[in-house]
Design a protein around this nucleic acid. Structure first.
Lengths: 337, 337
DNA sequence: CTCCTGGACTTAAAGGTTTTCGGAAACGTA
DNA sequence: TACGTTTCCGAAAACCTTTAAGTCCAGGAG
C-alpha cells in the first residue's frame, strides 16, 4: 500500500504546465505542442498517474459503469450474461457492478438504490426464470434492459430465448430421425419455460401430423424426477422411441432410469435435453443432444442494446433470440453410435 | 427515464434552508432543529433525492466499493465468494465491482487499472485453483485479499480451504466404517489441490497404520476419467472396498463405472467425493458423501478481513479454513441404505 | 447594561477533473 | 508601427457533497 495517489495537479507541476494543459495532453486533445505533450506524458508515467474516475464521472455525468441485478444465486444464468456483457462493453472500458437480490424484492430495492446513488449509466436485470417479472421501477433515471426474464411492462426492453422455437427444433430433429412415438417430460407448469417448450413440442408434432405419445409429464427440474418419469413412462407406454426433456437434469435422470429398465439410449429411445449444462450434457453417457440457449450471446445482445438505450436509441418490446440444437450421442441414428 | 436528478441543492431550496443544513439533516447530525429536519426530509422524499455517491466519494476518499477479480469464468468459485462477500459487507452497504480476467494476465492488468481508477476501497482476488499465483502487483494503493488461490507472496493476505485436513477427514470416515483397502483417484498432479488431497489421504492412512490400496491414480477432473479409473482399478485390484476421489465429477464417473462392472456402491465399495457440487453430489444415485469446502464462508471471511485491512488491520499470511464432510449414501454402512 | 454561552443556521473551502474562454506570444502583412 | 492570425497555454467555472469555521440571536449571569 503506497502513499497518496498522484493527481493531475502533481502531473502538471512536474511537467511545468497548468492543469488544463495537462488534461488536454493526457486526453489527446489539440491545442498542445508535441514537446509539451511529451513532457506531460512522461510526468504522468513517472508518477503512475491514474485519472480519478469519480471526479470525471461527477463532471461528465457518465460513470462508464452498469449495474447487473440478478436473482439467480447459482449463477446459471447470470454468469453467461455477465460474460457477454463484458465482451460487448469491451475489455476494461465498462465496469459491471454486480448485485444479487436472492429473489427478495426488498433486497432488490435496496440494491437498486445503491446502484442509482452510484450513478450507473444503465441497468441489466437478469431473471431467474423466463417468467415475466415486475418492472423494476417506473421513471428510473437510467435505461434498463431485461435479460432472460422479461419485464411485465411491454414498453421495457427485454431479451429472452426462443423456447418455443427451440423446442420445435428439437422435436423436428427427432422426427427427422424417424421417431414417431415421442413423449415429453418437463418441469413445473408454473414456469413459462415449461409451458413454452411444451407449446413448441406440440406445434412441431402438429405440423408433422404426428400424435404425442401419452400426456406431457410435469414434475420438477431434477434428475430424480427424470428417473421417476422413466419408470412411469416405460410402464404406461413401452412403445415410445423418443423423449424430449425440459432440462438436462431431467434428461440425465431419464437416461439413467431407461438404462435401469434395460432399454438403450439412443437405440431404443432417443433423448433430447435442454440447457446444454456441460457437466450433465457432455459428461454423461451417452452425451446429450440438447438445446443451448446461447445465454452468452443473449447477454452480449442485452449489453449492446443497453448501450443503444444509453445513447437514447431504445428498442422497446420483448425480443426473442434463437437457440441452438447441439447434437450428440443421445440421438444418434441406430448403428452410428 | 425521468429528467435530471435532484441534488441536495434542490432539496435545500425546497425546504428553504442552506445546503449545509440540508446535508446535516439528511445525515442525522446534530445542530438542526427537529422541525427543520422534518422539512428537509419531506423535501428529499418529495424529490426522491439520492445523494451522489461520486461526489461523496470524491470528498471522503472512500467509495464503499470493492473489486472482485476472478479468472474463473464458470463461477464455480467466484460466485460463492461473491455471495459471502456481499453478506459480510451488509446488504446494499458495499457494492462489488466484478471483473473476469479469463486467465489472461494482460486482461487482468487492464481490469486492475480500471478498478483502481474507480477508486475501489479494496480488492478480492479469486483464483481458479489453489495453486499459488503471482501477487497482483506490488505497492497497490489499496489492500488486497486473495481467496481460494493464494498469493505467492507470503506477506499478502490469503484464504484457502484446508485440503489436506479435509482429505484426512474423508479417509478417517472411511476407516471408521471399517474399510481397509482404500484407493485414491484424483486430478492432474500439477494442481496443488490434487497434491494436498493426496497428502491428507496418505497422512490419515499412515496414522491408522493402513496401507494404500494400489497407487494414486492421477488423471483429469472429469467423469470420463472416473469411469475409466474404475475399470482399471477393478481390473488391477478387485479387492478394494473404498475410494477417495479428488472431485465429485471423478466420483460420479467412478460410481457409474463401478455399477457397470456389477459392483455396488456403497455395499461393496464406499465412495467419497470432493466439492459438494450439488448437481452431482445430491442428484446422482447414491447421493455422494463429499467434502464441502465452505466457499461461501471463505468468501465471507475474506471480505471481513478485507474490511479489517481497509481499516489498517491487515493479517498477512496464508490462512487455512476448515472444510466439512457431508455424509450421504455413498458411504452408508451395509444394510443401512 | 454588558458579557458570555450555546443553539441554529450559513458561508466557504475542499476534493479531482474537464472545458470554455480569454490571453499571450510569435509571426506575417499593410 | 499597427493590426490580424495562428498557436499554445492558463484561469476559472462546473459537477455535488461534507465539514470546519463563522454568524446571528436569544437568554442567562454578572
Amino acid at each position: 500500500m503506497a502513499g497518496k495517489r498522484a493527481t493531475i495537479n502533481d502531473v502538471a507541476s512536474l511537467a511545468g504546465v497548468s492543469i488544463a494543459t495537462a488534461s488536454k495532453a493526457l486526453n489527446g486533445r489539440q491545442d498542445v505542442r508535441a514537446a509539451t505533450r511529451e513532457r506531460v506524458l512522461a510526468a504522468a508515467a513517472e508518477l503512475s498517474f491514474q485519472p480519478n474516475a469519480l471526479a470525471r464521472g461527477l463532471l461528465s455525468g457518465q460513470t462508464r459503469t452498469v449495474g447487473l441485478l440478478t436473482s439467480d444465486s447459482v449463477g446459471r444464468f447470470g454468469i453467461p450474461v455477465l460474460l457477454g456483457a463484458e465482451d460487448a462493453f469491451g475489455a476494461g472500458e465498462m465496469a459491471v457492478l454486480l448485485c444479487d437480490a436472492r429473489g427478495d424484492a426488498i433486497r432488490e430495492q435496496h440494491h437498486l438504490r445503491a446502484l442509482l446513488s452510484r450513478r450507473v449509466d444503465g441497468l441489466i436485470v437478469v431473471g431467474e426464470s423466463t417468467n415475466p417479472r415486475p418492472s423494476v421501477s417506473k421513471d428510473l433515471p437510467v435505461p434498463v434492459v431485461y435479460a432472460y426474464g422479461p419485464s411485465e411492462d411491454p414498453s421495457d426492453v427485454s431479451f429472452v430465448p426462443d423456447d418455443v422455437g427451440a423446442a420445435a427444433m428439437a422435436v423436428n430433429h427427432l422426427l427427422a430421425l424417424g421417431r414417431r412415438r415421442i413423449a415429453h417430460i418437463t418441469g413445473p407448469s408454473h414456469y413459462k419455460a415449461a409451458r413454452d417448450r411444451e407449446e413448441g413440442f406440440h406445434r412441431a408434432l402438429a405440423e408433422a401430423g404426428v400424435a404425442q405419445a401419452g400426456q406431457t409429464m410435469s414434475g420438477v427440474w431434477s434428475q430424480r424426477w427424470g428417473r421417476h418419469a422413466a419408470e412411469m413412462l416405460l410402464m404406461a407406454d413401452p412403445g415410445i422411441d423418443a423423449v424430449f426433456c425440459g432440462s438436462d437434469q431431467i434428461a440425465a435422470g431419464f437416461v439413467e432410469g431407461v438404462r435401469e429398465r434395460g432399454r438403450r439410449v439412443p437405440d431404443d429411445i432417443a433423448v433430447v435435453g435442454y440447457d446444454n449444462w456441460e457437466v450433465l450434457s457432455t459428461e454423461t453417457r451417452p452425451a446429450l443432444t440438447t438445446v443451448d440457449m446461447n445465454l452468452e450471446v443473449l447477454g452480449r445482445t442485452a449489453a449492446q442494446h443497453l448501450f443503444a438505450a444509453i445513447d437514447g436509441k431504445a428498442t422497446p418490446g420483448i425480443h426473442t433470440l434463437p437457440c441452438q440444437l447441439v447434437i450428440r450421442d443421445s440421438t444418434s441414428p441406430p448403428g452410428v453410435s
